[in-house]
Design a protein around this nucleic acid. Structure first.
Lengths: 212, 212
DNA sequence: CATGAAATGAGAGTAGCTCTCAATATCTAG
DNA sequence: CTAGATATTGAGAGCTACTCTCATTTCATG
């Protein structure tokens, strides 16, 4: 009936022998997300309602909520976390911890830039502009922080949830979030990887006493 | 008609020669907050509606929103930030920066503990349990972070919004937030000041390479 | 193809939050 | 002390994110 929907599923989403059901679910998911991105670019975040998203994705509003718990999650859900943690664990055991961290975060940024640069920018942009999105992002990052903390604990021989490890992980998360904000606020002019390096320096060694 | 409302305004709120209008506003404000705290203790956060709060505070729901933009803000609004910044600026200029920071944050904790220990605990508790509150708290802390960043910049002779300063401030905020979570999760057994010290050590010097 | 399971749509309902407008309370001049 | 300007409030309509339920449709499987 409406074959002109531009619902281009970003990656072809390799689906070898998945049942039709599973395939449809993936399709619906990406349809909702694509619709959301498009509408946000057209009208902005707040002006975009779930109803509109549902309409463009050709599903019912109920379905939208079945796939994403909140509006913010439609924009933010990503799958890098698990991957990041895996990579972290598979680093050589004798590599100094900060190096591992740097390697992995760098790689995550590289991937994001290679695979979906637009989305990465849109997200950062929304983080700056929409408090709810920023809040949700911090929330999800703090979950990542917990995972990170366990990895750090394992590496540094500290108890799993020692205060030190938790504080370190969360301050890391805070710092990384700030990179995105900085990047977006400066219109994406800087090289994210370079910002990352500078941020990690600060987090690892603190602010050097003075610079003058 | 209902003279049994226990609306005890926490501090007598020194009101020397304020107009009647201003005095009433302060009263209303604390009435709303007290009602909210009481209801939350009785029923929990989610079960407490604005309507209930309005009823107990003897104002209309409209008025509640006039005084606080969101439900989370009723719980969280505090006035330490400005004070904290002032103190920070009035520290001796030759004091090493980390010492200033430590002094000021310690003092903030001390004040919170002295003046409204219950509220401080309730807040920390809600931070753990209610994602929306936690998110709002991070949000408000990030505002503080910005202010902090400018103070840090002034002290360390860096540009106002250099990436380094911003990352430092935000990682500080993240770390401090984590203290509260840790504290609340461990049923307030630890001494907050001690947790603060340990956290600041981590943030200033990074995680020491290993501990084994 | 028939039966069971899963996904969907429709719709009602809740609550946070915004906005408008009329009523009331406070302040300020004369 | 009164009148008019101004600030605050209450009432209520309205929007939207989000939840829940139930009937219907769609896929899987023997």
């Amino acid at each position: 009936m409406t074959p002109m929907t531009p619902a281009r599923t970003s990656p072809p989403t390799d689906l070898p022998q998945l049942g039709l059901r599973e395939r449809k679910k993936i399709k619906t998911r990406t349809a909702i997300r694509d619709a959301t991105y498009a509408l946000i670019e057209e009208q902005g975040y707040d002006a975009t309602t779930i109803e509109q998203i549902a309409e463009r994705a050709e599903v019912s509003p109920s379905t939208v909520f079945r796939y994403f718990p909140t509006k913010e999650d439609i924009v933010l859900t990503d799958e890098y976390d698990a991957m990041l943690l895996d990579e972290l664990r598979s680093r050589p055991a004798d590599e100094p911890w900060p190096d591992s961290l740097r390697y992995v975060t760098r790689r995550a940024i590289g991937l994001a830039r290679a695979e979906e640069p637009e989305v990465t920018r849109l997200r950062a942009h929304l983080m700056v502009q929409v408090p709810a999105v920023r809040a949700r992002m911090m929330e999800s990052m703090s979950v990542t922080g917990r995972l990170l903390a366990s990895a750090v604990a394992a590496r540094t021989g500290r108890p799993q949830d020692s205060l030190e490890v938790r504080v370190y992980a969360m301050s890391l998360i805070g710092g990384l979030a700030e990179i995105s904000l900085y990047w977006a606020e400066n219109d994406f002019r800087d090289d994210l990887t370079e910002l990352l390096d500078r941020a990690l320096d600060v987090i690892e060694h603190g602010l050097s006493p003075d610079v003058s």
